[in-house]
Amino acid sequence: MPRLILFDLDNTLCDHATSRSLRVRHAFAPFFANETDLGQAVQEAVTRSMEGTTHFPGILEQYGADANAAEAARERYVSDRYRGLELYSDALHTIEKVKQVASIGMITNGPTDIQQPKIDLLQIEHLFPFILISESVGIWKPDPAIFHMALEKAGIAAEDAIYVGDSPVADVPGAKAAGMRSVWINCAGINWPGDEPPDIEIRDLNELLLSLGLAP
């Protein structure tokens, strides 16, 4: 049993992917009369990038929208940033279960003015002894330094810690570089797209509990 379990936030504890799709749909909807075209444009937007709005003009232009429409869509998206954002149904239960047997913490990439309101909305800050937001500490995953910072805060060695995250780019290689075991949460059920695979692969947080020998 690890002494420290560190969690990612987006697409690990909360469903950022679904929220992103809902926000893009809300942003694009006024500029489409055809539901099929709207659905295709939303899918293209979220497939091309799970963050940001810089690709909105190019996508909307394909469907006859002008630069003014693209700017209006961007404004609608930014003003509605947290539409549909919710914790996964097993997130709170998992956090409470692992807290009974190990220390916990969170490391999340992103701007502080986006990630902190997200944490506040989800009402989870009080559950974690510490939360490291990349912009706030000046280090971004997969830099192992942010993982080392978390280990130092917890006072626990890397070999006694695991990191749970969804990103094959930021989470798994970063944790491994820091000397921790990595747990890849693969909600989409895709094949591992990276180089060195994770130590453990799970489909949801209930499987994390099972991998730790805890009852879901």
Rank of each mutant, 00 (worst) to 15 (best):
L6M: 02
D8M: 12
D8Q: 13
D10S: 05
N11T: 04
N11I: 04
T12R: 08
C14H: 12
C14K: 13
R20G: 05
R23G: 14
P30W: 00
F32T: 00
N34W: 00
N34Q: 00
N34D: 00
T36Q: 03
D37M: 00
D37F: 00
G39Q: 01
A41R: 00
V42W: 01
E44L: 14
V46L: 07
V46M: 15
V46P: 03
T47V: 07
R48V: 04
S49D: 11
M50P: 08
T53I: 08
T53E: 08
H55L: 05
H55E: 11
P57C: 09
P57E: 11
G58C: 12
I59G: 15
I59M: 14
L60Y: 05
E61L: 12
E61F: 10
Q62N: 13
Q62I: 04
Y63P: 01
A65C: 15
N68A: 13
A69W: 02
A69G: 03
A69K: 02
A69D: 03
A70Y: 01
E71T: 10
A73H: 03
R74G: 09
E75S: 11
S79D: 15
R81P: 04
Y82H: 07
G84D: 09
E86Q: 11
Y88N: 06
A91H: 01
E96F: 12
K97L: 13
A102N: 00
A102H: 01
I104E: 12
M106H: 10
M106V: 10
T108M: 11
T108E: 07
N109C: 07
N109D: 12
G110I: 10
G110E: 10
P111M: 13
P111F: 15
P111N: 08
I114P: 03
I114L: 08
I114Q: 06
Q116L: 14
P117Y: 06
K118R: 15
I119R: 06
I119L: 15
I119K: 11
Q123L: 05
E125C: 09
H126W: 06
H126L: 08
F128S: 02
F130C: 10
L132W: 00
E135G: 09
S136L: 06
V137Y: 08
G138E: 09
W140N: 10
W140A: 13
W140E: 12
P142R: 09
F147G: 06
H148L: 12
M149N: 03
A150G: 14
A150T: 11
E152L: 09
K153Y: 10
I156K: 03
A158P: 02
A161L: 06
Y163Q: 06
V164Y: 04
P168K: 02
V169T: 15
V172P: 01
V172C: 02
G174C: 03
G174P: 07
A175Q: 07
A175S: 14
R181M: 11
V183H: 01
W184F: 08
I185A: 03
I185Y: 04
I185S: 07
A188E: 14
P193Y: 04
E196T: 00
D199E: 12
D199P: 05
D199A: 14
I200D: 03
E201M: 14
I202D: 06
R203E: 10
R203S: 15
D204S: 13
D204R: 10
N206F: 07
E207Y: 05
L209M: 14
